[in-house]
């Protein structure tokens, strides 16, 4: 674990355009390289907006968002998309995969937009097989259509997709909420194992404090994010 902050937000303010008015502000958030952070918060606590700011799909109205030493504001729209593809692996709550695509195509998808990650794995299809094996997915799962997998398996495929080509940051938005408790623990074990192997930085968001075990730090949304919402 190095001291360098890989994610750094300072005095960030963002206001959603449109109605009802909704804005968030983050005074300070800093994540060191290799850290495993759990962000706890209920829905409506600004989680999605915060993650969008970090993933550079939203631009802060003021303040600075620095990811891996690059200030997001300085990038053009196209460069931000490229930056996200290279730097960040994303795992959603559910429906992570393109249901009509094979597992292989789903896992390879981010490489299509990230040349550096593509170069990181010499033989991408073999890497996919390896990842699937490490994540405890059944043999020959690669050729299966994503829609034919169980929810738990789909989430693991999503992890494989987030990890392939070793992006420095892994962002997981409630990745376990669609799983039962046994599966949740199982999933987290596998996730932590891979994060350790790849030495990634993990930023996971959840509403469930039960999952805190194994994270380096647990942050509460209410401590770092200030949400302003007009009463309609």
């Amino acid at each position: 674990m190095s001291d360098a902050s890989i994610i750094k937000l300072n005095d960030v303010r963002f206001r959603w355009p449109g109605w009802p008015p909704f804005s968030i502000s983050v005074d300070k958030l800093s994540v060191r390289e290799g850290e495993k952070i759990l962000l706890l918060g209920e829905s409506g606590s600004g989680k999605s907006t915060l993650l969008s700011l970090i993933c550079a799909t939203l631009l802060a109205d003021s303040g600075t968002v620095v990811i891996g030493g690059t200030e997001i504001k300085t990038l053009s729209g196209w460069a931000r998309d490229r930056f996200r593809a290279e730097q960040i692996g994303v795992i959603f709550q559910q429906f992570n995969l393109l249901p009509f695509g094979s597992v292989l195509d789903n896992i390879l998808l981010p490489l299509r937009f990230a040349p550096i990650r593509r170069r990181n794995c010499n033989d991408a299809p073999r890497k996919v097989v390896e990842l699937c094996k490490d994540l405890g997915l059944p043999d020959n799962v690669e050729t299966t259509k994503a829609a034919n997998l169980s929810v738990g398996q789909q989430q693991r495929v999503a992890v494989a997709r987030a990890l392939i080509g070793q992006p420095p940051i892994l962002i997981a938005d409630e990745p376990t909420s669609s799983l039962d408790e046994a599966n949740q623990d199982n999933f987290l074990d596998v996730l932590f194992e891979q994060v350790r192997v790849y030495n990634s930085t993990l930023l996971m968001v959840s509403h469930n404090p039960r999952l805190s075990e194994g994270f380096d730090r647990v942050l509460h949304m209410s401590e770092i994010v200030n949400v302003e919402r007009a009463v309609v």
Partner: peptide, 8 residues
């Protein structure tokens, strides 16, 4: 999903 993967 495409967007999250870095598709512009």
């Amino acid at each position: 999903i495409f967007r999250a993967m870095g598709a512009s």
